[in-house]
Nucleic acid binder design. Structure first.
Lengths: 258, 258
DNA sequence: CTCTATCCGTCCGATTATCGGACAAAAGAA
DNA sequence: TTCTTTTGTCCGATAATCGGACGGATAGAG
């Protein structure tokens, strides 16, 4: 039982959507049985089995003792996007530069095109590259409690934002997370006006981060650039006084390059 | 006109294969018109149009003035693979460690499951992280003229290797590239026995690289670990005397961790 | 050891999603 | 302008796909 409203489009290939839906179920899970894939994707057993069978023959999935897992074949697709999209490749270079300048972790993210509730990292430069980070290019985070998410949500049209807000559940990540739609709406309004967002310990206790938008020539916001710090290292004022100008400069550099 | 031999499989979803085929056409191209997508994917116009339309509704593709391009939505899929596959995540950590130890660029790669002719990078640690590298996780390279490719080809069963060799065109990248199937077969035989591969300037003039296999408990080769150097920096002997022991140690560490 | 609950592979009829040739309009290029 | 290429759409025929159902296999519980 998919959406129920996606019918009546003679140009929509349902089988393709189903197959990609099965692929998506692997996000975060290392292996799946057929029954699990069926449950998580909302398909019946035979359909899920057919999808996995097809994906296996195409080389995207492999099977071991009844359990299916992804192969590296997805990686070239992602790398193709990263290298052929100017926004992505330039973002990585700019993030590296700003990281070196500030000695802080710098990231660039965009909204998931089909779910404004989450952001996707498209570039990331870590302050301390030794640590195995829990975040990387391709990682996702909720948008309502992150500085990049706030910047991106603030850039949406009123209609789209309200539509999303009406159906969204604002998960509480810490006791400081804004979970009320009204409060979030107010905050987004301020973000839209000041053109930056500072979020303190709403995603995780101890984290403070600041983000600014990346816009194209038409003024459309394409992505957000942010710097993430530990709360006890720098004050709110320090971020705004010291880092915001550099963030803005880097954002401008990126905007000129794409 | 696809393959012509893939018919008669009642469990194969052709539409899914077609859609993924269209996605794959974007590798390396930043944007495509419908007609181009149709040409490159081997479909007719209406079919390619349907695929793009569907991919757009699913959020994997976007359209601007009649040209279609990928969205970041593919990235979480790749990141999901990297984080949920022990081989991939541990590889990155081991590569970082070996990079720090040798002060050289270290990579881990695997064969494309549906095309032994190319290898896919699943981890990479650069010696000089300032340079914007042409290679990253997800990049692909021909296997016949790379050290990782040789190691991986040497691990194939005779049957599979011969089948691939019989239909492969061994592209010449430099004047030193082995392009004769017989010569390659001989080289692979040696690689299989000595358990390492040293390739000198067959991919690009000035590059010398050394690779060793990564095997699971059953002895099946899953990937290859390599160190890449400039020819004028270190001799062939230096690589074998100095780097091979460390490469082997790192490979063993990786093998124990997965 | 038996019973039970899943899970898996498969079959097959019904349906419907999909295919692709064709046409007309639109957009460019010459 | 004229010619070429692209695009959106229609539609009948076809074949691909769906999913309920069955039987065997497996595993864990009692």
């Amino acid at each position: 039982m998919p959406a129920a409203s996606e019918a009546a489009d003679p140009n929509f290939m349902l089988s393709l959507a189903r197959g990609l839906g099965v692929l998506r179920v692997f996000e975060g899970r290392s292996s799946l049985s057929i029954a699990e894939a069926a449950r998580f994707s909302g398909l019946n057993r035979p359909s899920a089995s057919r999808c996995l069978h097809t994906l296996m023959r195409l080389g995207y999935v492999r099977e071991h003792g009844g359990r299916y897992s992804l192969t590296p074949k997805l990686l070239p697709l992602a790398a193709g996007f990263l290298t052929s999209t100017p926004l992505a490749s330039v973002s990585q270079a700019v993030a590296n530069g700003l990281r070196d300048r500030l000695q802080e972790t710098v990231s660039v993210g965009a909204l998931d095109p089909s779910d404004p509730g989450r952001i996707i990292y498209i570039a990331r430069a870590e302050r301390n590259q030794v640590i195995a980070a829990p975040l990387m290019v391709g990682s996702t985070l909720p948008s309502h409690c992150t500085s990049m998410g706030r910047v991106l949500l603030a850039s949406m049209t009123n209609g789209a934002r309200e539509q999303w807000l009406s159906g969204a559940v604002l998960e509480s990540r810490t006791e400081r997370t804004i979970t009320s739609p009204d409060a979030l709406r107010g905050e987004l309004c301020a973000v839209a006006e000041q053109r930056w967002s500072l979020v303190e310990e709403e995603l995780e206790i101890g984290l403070r981060s600041l983000a600014v938008p990346i816009r194209d020539r038409d003024g459309t916001t394409l992505a957000a650039l942010n710097v993430a710090t530990f709360s006890d290292a720098h004050s709110r004022e320090h971020l705004i006084d010291r880092y915001l100008p550099d963030l803005r400069a880097a954002a401008g550099q990126l905007e000129r390059a794409i």
